[in-house]
Computed example of a mutant assay.
Amino acid sequence: MSQANTIGPIAIELEPGTYYRCMCGKSAKAPFCDGSHVGTGKTPVAFEVKEKKEVHLCQCFKTGNAPFCDGSHAK
């Protein structure tokens, strides 16, 4: 029997704008990209926030709705 990943999402309030979610795990500005992915074969996920709001960014990287959490960490 496998255990569910217990890493839940990052809840963060963002202003309107375009953001780039780090997907390589090397960014010093995590959860956002700082360019450290160069040469890793991984690229950041761009997303737009149209109005100030709280978002829940996936940390387990199993989501089907990157960069947002879809509850996959609990499965």
Rank of each mutant, 00 (worst) to 15 (best):
M23G: 01
P44T: 05
S72A: 15
C60Y: 02
S36N: 06
V38I: 15
F68C: 11
C22Q: 03
F68P: 01
G25M: 06
S72N: 14
C22R: 01
L57R: 01
K42M: 10
H37N: 12
K26F: 08
C69T: 06
C22P: 14
E54N: 13
K62R: 15
P67Q: 10
G39H: 11
E51F: 15
K26D: 13
G71Q: 09
E51Q: 15
C24R: 03
A66E: 12
D70F: 07
H37C: 05
D70R: 03
H37F: 11
Q59H: 07
F47I: 13
C33M: 06
C24P: 01
C69F: 02
M23V: 12
T43Y: 13
L57I: 08
G39F: 12
D34F: 07
F68G: 05
N65G: 11
D70N: 09
K26E: 14
G25I: 03
Y19P: 02
G64Y: 10
T63R: 08
K52F: 05
A30E: 06
F68A: 12
T43Q: 13
S36D: 03
T40W: 03
C24V: 11
C24M: 10
C60M: 12
F61S: 09
G25P: 00
F61D: 02
F47K: 02
F61L: 15
S27Y: 06
M23F: 01
F32Q: 02
C33A: 11
K26S: 05
K26A: 06
G71P: 10
F32S: 03
E48D: 14
T63N: 02
